[in-house]
Design a protein around this nucleic acid. Sequence first.
DNA 1: CCCCAGGTCTGCT
DNA 2: AGCAGACATGGG
Length: 299
Amino acid sequence: MKSFSLTESQLPFDLDLSLSCGQIFGWKKTRDTWKGVHNGSIVTIRQKGILIEYDGLSQQDVIRFLGLSDPISDIIESIREHIIAYKGSPDRFFETRYSQSRGLRILRQHPWECLVSFICSANSNVSTIGKRINLILGRYGTSCTLFENTFPDPAVLSQCQEPELRECLTGYRAPYLIKTAQYIHEHPDFFHQVRKMEYHQAKDTLMNLPGVGPKVADCVLLFAFEHLNAVPVDIRIRKIIEDKYASLIHTDKSGKLPYDTIGGFCREYFGPYAGYAQQYLFATRDLEKGEVTRSAELP
DNA sequence: CCCCAGGTCTGCT
DNA sequence: AGCAGACATGGG
């Protein structure tokens, strides 16, 4: 395995949290080593303190994939400054969540792999999504080694049979995957075009794809296109915002807030790194079994 | 047998 | 534009 050491400006970094917090699916950890698919390759990575050991990618690509070039101390500082500017005092709830998810990075996924993953994610849970992705890799993946596959190309998925794809636990999402694959296959420069667009235009463009609504589009923009202001609003984030931040949102409505109201508020409140703030709120290390409201309440 | 999950689409007002 | 229902399926 190749290796490098994290520098001061790249700390804190937490590989386990970054790979298991629900921004990427299908990665498996055996003992201390993670293995998964990235950019058409099988990649292995492990972290021992400040040492990163890896294989299957160049060092440059590992650094990019793991978001290790992000100015992480500037990012948290920016988020805190925007909070102060907005409401005049620190945000205890955010700080509690942040303290439990320090070291998290926004990964830089391959757009196609990310798009497939999040079309599969609709109305499902993290563990099921991971199984779904691995079943797709197993059945349709382009062969890498004997037992390891990477994401099937758009051409492959566009021509697969829907009943067969449904055997990969995709359910009603199968036709979305096939139609989206057809579109990407017929427009090979689609991702290249999207990459050049500003946030809102890129989002509108992605939302033209079958199975891609505002949430999936925001996930792809945040996790694959480096739009760090994109805020995916899922059930968990919606509950947090409606429970903890409703009083800060100027709206005539009561009850369920529209998607763009929540996303727009987060961008105003947290600033241009709202996507990072959202991940800190979403991805608390020990949140997975019902500790949603215990540890952090206003003073 | 119930409800929930990193939602989207369709078809009504 | 905004709002219910339908949609497959595993987990708890």
